[in-house]
C-alpha cells in the first residue's frame, strides 16, 4: 500500500547512458520514509526520557523512612545523581552500597561528605552526621554499559535500584 504512493513517471529514452533503476528508487523512497518515521519516534522517545533525563527515566523508590531518586536510563560516561532523602534521621545515617554496583560506577562526589567510609561484607558503608529530614546526594558516573540492579541499604531499609546504561 505504501508503495502505491510512490508512483514515478516512466522515462523512455536511450540516448542518455545512465544506470537508472526506478524500481530500486521506489524501494529507496519507501525505506527513507520508514526511516524518517523511526527517527522521529526515537527522538520523541528521547524527549520523554527513554535514553535518560526525562519522565520515563526518573524514578523514585521509597520506604517509610527513606527515598531514593535516580535515573533508570543512563548513558555511558555521563554523570548522574542519586538523591537520598531520609525522614526523621537520627544523629547518624548509614548508606550501604554493594561493591559490585560501585565497580560499575565512579563515585565523583558525595554531598555532604561522609564522616566514615568503611567496607564490610561486600558493601561500602558511608556514615553521615544527620538530624531530622536529610538529603544526601551522590554524583556517579557509569563506566560500563548494560542492565544492572543493586540493593542499597539506607539505615535499616533496603531499596532496589535498576539501571540500564546505554553505550
Amino acid at each position: 500500500m505504501l508503495f502505491s504512493k510512490f508512483k514515478l513517471e516512466d522515462v523512455k529514452q536511450d540516448s542518455l547512458q545512465v544506470e537508472e533503476d526506478i524500481s530500486f528508487v521506489r524501494k529507496e523512497l519507501v525505506f527513507q520514509r520508514v526511516g524518517w518515521f523511526v527517527m522521529f519516534v526515537v527522538l520523541a522517545l528521547g524527549c520523554v526520557g527513554l535514553f535518560g533525563t526525562g519522565i520515563l527515566s526518573h524514578r523514585t523508590e521509597a520506604t517509610a523512612n527513606a527515598k531514593i531518586e535516580y535515573e533508570r536510563f543512563l548513558r555511558f560516561d555521563n554523570k548522574t545523581q542519586l538523591i537520598f532523602r531520609i525522614n526523621n534521621a537520627n544523629s547518624s545515617t548509614t548508606i550501604g552500597i554493594p561493591i559490585n554496583y560501585l565497580s560499575k560506577f565512579i563515585v565523583e562526589k558525595i554531598t555532604p561528605e561522609p564522616h566514615i567510609q568503611r567496607q564490610t561484607n561486600g558493601s561500602m558503608f558511608y556514615d553521615f552526621h544527620t538530624a531530622g529530614s536529610s538529603e544526601i546526594r551522590m554524583l556517579v558516573k557509569p563506566i560500563t554499559t548494560g542492565n544492572y540492579k543493586a540493593n542499597i541499604a539506607v539505615n535499616r531499609d533496603v531499596i532496589q535500584l535498576t539501571h540500564f546504561v546505554y553505550p
Partner: peptide, 9 residues
Amino acid sequence: EGTPVIIVD
C-alpha cells in the same frame, strides 16, 4: 549510494 534519477525529460 543509490542510483541516479532523471528528473527532467
